[in-house]
């Protein structure tokens, strides 16, 4: 028996918005410690890694490990039926071919149940290597989304350049060039407004604008985003999911730009 109940059900709705444009289908690995999802996007250009720890759920039970292959378009349709303040429970029998979503209104006056067919997905087992990153940049997630959106008007690529002074985002195209520099912030009232650069070596890498913009669909999950870069390895874009876990996107640098 698997059962995971989340009072803050809106988090699950936001997680779905953050992955549904990148993945058509994915396997949810449910284990005693929590739920993991790891999958390459539809074009195999980026990797999505989602981690939801059992401690983040209000009730979590997983008697034996199960892998639930889900069609994310269908799952997204179902989660759209939940209100933002609904409590969401996912449950499945050990060897079931369906998963049930239960939405409870906060006053328990309305309870909706949706059953969805599971899929057998033959997905590659991928490992994420431990990497020491030369630059780790934390910035407000809304700011990052704005920069990606603004620069996508100029070209298909964004150059991210990190030095000890701060981080520079640039794009160039037919209409001209754009450069946005963010300096490290001094003292800020709210931690989430800070720009923090932790740099061992300066790094400059080029990434696809389209994918960075897709990653920013996770912005509602967290006020801060963390970018980790090293030469010749994929960029990591990480959003925390409340106290429950995180979503990480990995994107290979563009070659030959």
């Amino acid at each position: 028996m698997f059962e995971a109940r989340l009072v803050q059900g809106s988090l699950l709705k936001k997680v779905m918005e953050a992955i549904k444009d990148l993945l058509n289908e994915a396997s949810f690995d449910c284990a005693h410690s929590g739920i993991l999802l790891q999958a390459m996007d539809n074009s195999h250009v980026s990797l999505v890694s989602l981690n939801l720890r059992k401690e983040g759920f209000d009730k979590y039970r997983c008697d034996r490990n199960i892998v639930m292959g889900m069609n994310l378009t269908s799952m997204s349709k179902i989660l759209k039926c939940a209100s933002n303040d609904d409590i969401i429970t996912m449950k499945a029998q050990d060897s079931a071919d369906t998963v049930t979503f239960v939405f409870e209104s906060p006053n328990q006056e309305k309870v909706s149940e949706y059953e969805m067919k599971l899929m057998n997905l033959d997905q590659d087992q991928l490992g994420i290597p431990e990497t020491e990153y030369c630059c780790i940049i934390k910035l407000p997630s809304g700011e990052f989304a704005r920069i990606c959106r603004d620069l996508s008007q100029f070209g298909e690529s964004i150059v991210i350049s990190c030095t000890k002074e701060g981080v520079k985002f640039s794009a160039a195209g037919d209409i001209g060039t754009a450069n946005i520099k963010l300096a490290q912030t001094g003292t800020v009232d709210k931690e989430e407004d800070a720009v923090i650069v932790d740099m061992q070596e300066p790094v400059t890498l080029t990434f696809s604008c389209k994918y960075l913009n897709m990653f920013t669909k996770a912005t509602p999950l967290s006020p801060q985003v963390c970018l980790s870069m090293s030469p010749d390895v994929p960029l990591v874009v990480e959003y925390k999911i409340g106290e429950i876990g995180h979503i990480r996107y990995y994107l290979a640098p563009r070659i030959g730009d």
Binding site: V45, L47, G127, P129, S208, V233, P234, A252, P253, I255
Partner: peptide
């Protein structure tokens, strides 16, 4: 696509 290959290699090597 070289970026695809790079990414797949990075995750498969581990």
């Amino acid at each position: 696509n070289t970026e695809q290959e790079e990414l797949e290699e990075y995750f498969k090597d581990s």
